[in-house]
Computed example of a mutant assay.
Amino acid sequence: MASPRKSQPMSTATLLRIALLIALVVAFALWNPAFISGRNIYALTQSFALLGLVALGLSLTMIAGEFDLSVGSMVAVGGLLTLVAGGSNLVHGMGVALAFAVVIGAANAFVVNRFNVSSLVVTVGSMMALSGFAFWLAGGKVISTDNFDLGFALDNPILTVLSWRGAITLAAFLLAGLFMRHTLMGRDIRVIGSKRLVAAASGAKVGLSLYIVFIVSALCAALAGSLLSMSLASAAATTGNNLMLQAVSAAIVGGVALSGGAGSPLHVLIGSLILTVMNNGLSLMGMGATGILFANGLVLMGIVLLDGQLGAWMSERFAASRARHSA
């Protein structure tokens, strides 16, 4: 009889990221007890619902060795299409926004795959085009709706600290994690990110993998913008201006390599939570946007060092310590 499959132990880098997240929560709670109040945790999960969903989609393109710079503009377009095309029926508007995202994601993948063009170049063009489209949809103003019912339902607290928007984001992470871990296509996405030529020679479906990651990236961004517009009952062309950089930071903090082939949705979840907790806690301390950006940069540089030679040295020390204790 086959022996049961043993679970893989967490890497030192993952454990340190979890420790950093716990340390941030403890430090902010000691500094200001209001940090762990139900109201603030609810606000924190609302912020995570937006950043986490965008970072999840973007991270899949990064794992595949590509990049989607258009996610911020897609958030704005997704929110505007939901209100403009939906009118009184916001669910219909969301359907239009998601269908539009599928078209844009497929177009990005087609150009990258068919003409072998860098995804950075392709998605810069998509970003500019989507930004222009967003300003055309908005007509130079903030679009609003009188339909507040769906927004109230999405923001209705679950167990006091989580909204349905947050629950949707967590469900997306769960589905993406299962897909990447337990499907052949998930394996192909990871392999083409590290060794594309070898993957293609071994029969990996490179083209289909690229279509999947770019479509999912666009869908996640459009869904995030759509849900946000329903929650706020308004949308603007400038909504996603800073989201792309935050999403990239969350993915890198979570351990996704810019070179591709490394990372997982679970790690991106941890990275998104680290940035969300830090931004929320620093805001409660009265720090402005400039200071928060500076702190994000410091954490990002620290994580890059952790994933480099410093992290390798720490892993060796940790392994040696475990070996001594075992002996």
Rank of each mutant, 00 (worst) to 15 (best):
V112R: 14
N113C: 10
L80Q: 08
L60H: 03
S88E: 11
L81A: 08
M62T: 01
V122K: 03
T61K: 00
L90P: 03
N147A: 15
L80M: 07
S118D: 14
I143C: 03
S73V: 03
A138S: 14
V142Y: 05
A85D: 02
A138M: 10
A85S: 07
G95K: 03
S144V: 13
A55Y: 03
L69H: 02
M62R: 04
S118L: 13
N113P: 00
I104P: 09
A134Y: 04
L98V: 04
A55W: 04
V54E: 01
A109K: 09
A55S: 13
F67Q: 01
F100K: 01
S88Y: 01
S73E: 00
T45H: 11
G132A: 10
V84T: 13
H92A: 13
G139T: 01
F110V: 15
V121K: 00
E66C: 09
S144K: 11
L83G: 10
F67S: 02
A64D: 08
L69I: 05
L83A: 07
A85G: 07
N147E: 13
M62K: 01
V102M: 12
V111H: 07
M128I: 15
V112L: 15
M94L: 14
A109N: 08
F148S: 13
F148H: 03
A97Y: 12
V75W: 02
N147Y: 13
V96L: 12
V96G: 09
L51E: 07
G78P: 06
S73M: 06
L130Y: 05
G93R: 06
V124S: 11
L80D: 05
F135E: 02
G95L: 12
L130Q: 11
L137Q: 06
V112F: 14
A76W: 00
A138C: 10
T45C: 07
A134S: 13
L90R: 03
F133Y: 12
V103S: 01
G52W: 04
T145F: 06
A76Q: 00
F148K: 08
M128T: 15
T145R: 13
G52F: 08
S70D: 09
G86T: 02
G79R: 01
D146W: 12
M62C: 02
L137V: 04
V142R: 09
W136E: 15
L120V: 15
A107T: 14
S119I: 02
T123H: 03
L81V: 14
R114F: 02
D68Q: 04
V96I: 14
G139C: 05
A107L: 15
V112I: 15
G95M: 11
M94H: 06
S144D: 08
V117L: 14
A55R: 00
G87A: 10
A43L: 13
L98D: 09
G57H: 00
L137A: 07
A76H: 00
T145V: 12
S131P: 00
V77D: 05
A97F: 09
I104R: 11
A129N: 03
V122N: 06
V77H: 04
G125W: 09
S126D: 06
N116R: 15
L90S: 03
V103E: 05
T145G: 10
D149Q: 13
T82K: 10
T61G: 00
